[in-house]
Amino acid sequence: MLATLLTTALTVSAQATGEEAPAPTIAPPFVIGITLFVVFVVLLFVTLSYTNLGRRHEATDEHADPHRQHPNKHDRHQGAPSH
């Protein structure tokens, strides 16, 4: 309710003063759109350039070291004595 009243008041005051000129921009809308498209395409290529990092080496299991300060809780007790 308050938002509707506020919007109506701003619309009425803008029409009363004759303010209907569009807000100024730094460039025409199509230039801004093309620039943003180019920026996102560059970011896409940067992202795609890192896709080979996961395929450099074969995946190997981590050695279960029982003397680690913070041991991995998901090693299924490979290096620990049986319970």
Rank of each mutant, 00 (worst) to 15 (best):
M1D: 04
M1S: 09
A3D: 07
A3W: 07
A3L: 13
A3C: 08
T4V: 10
T4M: 11
L5R: 07
L6G: 00
L6H: 01
A9V: 02
A9L: 10
A9Y: 02
L10V: 04
V12W: 03
V12G: 02
A14T: 03
Q15F: 01
Q15L: 11
Q15K: 06
A16D: 09
A16E: 09
E19P: 02
E19L: 13
E19A: 13
E19S: 13
E20V: 08
E20F: 13
E20Y: 12
A21K: 14
A21Q: 14
A21N: 11
P22D: 03
P22Y: 06
P22G: 01
A23T: 03
P24K: 06
I26E: 07
I26K: 07
I26L: 12
A27Q: 11
P29A: 15
P29G: 12
P29E: 15
F30C: 12
V31C: 13
V31Y: 06
V31T: 10
G33S: 07
G33N: 08
I34Y: 00
I34M: 05
T35E: 03
T35Q: 04
L36I: 08
F37T: 13
V38S: 03
V38T: 05
V38C: 02
V38Q: 02
V39E: 03
F40Q: 15
F40A: 14
V41L: 15
V41E: 01
V41A: 09
V42W: 01
V42I: 14
L43I: 08
L44R: 12
F45T: 09
V46T: 06
V46W: 07
V46C: 07
V46N: 05
V46I: 13
T47V: 00
T47Q: 02
S49D: 04
S49Y: 04
Y50G: 03
Y50D: 06
Y50M: 07
Y50I: 04
T51K: 10
T51C: 09
L53E: 15
L53V: 15
L53G: 13
R55L: 15
R55T: 15
R55P: 02
H57G: 07
H57W: 15
H57C: 12
E58C: 08
E58N: 10
A59Y: 13
A59C: 08
T60S: 09
D61P: 08
D61K: 05
D61S: 06
D61V: 04
E62I: 09
H63E: 13
H63A: 08
A64N: 10
D65N: 15
D65L: 12
D65V: 08
P66Q: 02
P66L: 10
H67N: 15
R68H: 00
R68A: 01
Q69P: 03
Q69T: 11
H70W: 13
P71H: 00
N72Y: 02
N72I: 04
N72A: 11
N72V: 02
K73V: 07
D75F: 00
D75I: 03
D75T: 06
R76A: 00
H77I: 03
G79W: 03
G79P: 01
A80M: 11
A80Q: 08
P81S: 04
S82M: 09
H83P: 12
H83Q: 09
